[in-house]
């Protein structure tokens, strides 16, 4: 039985080559302050690294930050790798610079939520707390 006091575990990090890390750090801190155990991976992760870390850390969700324009390949790759490892139960969400035209197609591949610049931290926290456990 999972007790109510068991914290949600979430991997937060940046995939791809860009170094825009202000947003992701804000998100990591906001989640920590709302009682989440945040596994922070830092910059420049590959989808393979992210998925391996997510499995080793047994996270409930993976939150990725992308400002490089490579979101259309990186998010689907992470989802695909999770599937290969039979770990589709791990929710994938994210933020950064994602043009609104790309949001629909990414959600269709299985991304649970994408948060654009200017999103309040409380919305992101609310989303994470609402994830199935």
């Amino acid at each position: 039985m999972t007790t109510a006091t068991t914290p949600i575990r979430v991997l937060i990090g940046k995939v791809g080559l860009d170094g825009h890390d202000r947003g992701v750090k804000l998100v990591a801190r906001a989640l920590r302050d709302s009682g989440v155990e945040v596994i922070y991976t830092g910059l420049h992760q590959t989808p393979e690294q992210v998925v391996n870390i997510a499995i080793q850390e047994d996270v409930n969700a993976i939150g990725l930050s992308i400002h490089s324009g490579a979101h259309t390949s990186l998010f689907p790759r992470v989802l695909e790798l999770l599937k290969t490892h039979h770990a589709e139960d791990i929710a994938v969400f994210g933020g950064g610079i994602i043009p609104s035209d790309d949001v629909g197609p990414l959600m269709e591949t299985g991304v649970r939520a994408l948060f654009p610049p200017g999103t309040s931290m409380s919305r992101i926290v609310e989303f994470v707390k609402g994830l199935p456990r």
Partner: peptide
């Protein structure tokens, strides 16, 4: 809050 930032593994990437 019970929350934490677990960042040790950044050094072991």
């Amino acid at each position: 809050t019970g929350g934490a930032i677990l960042g040790d593994r950044i050094r072991m990437q």
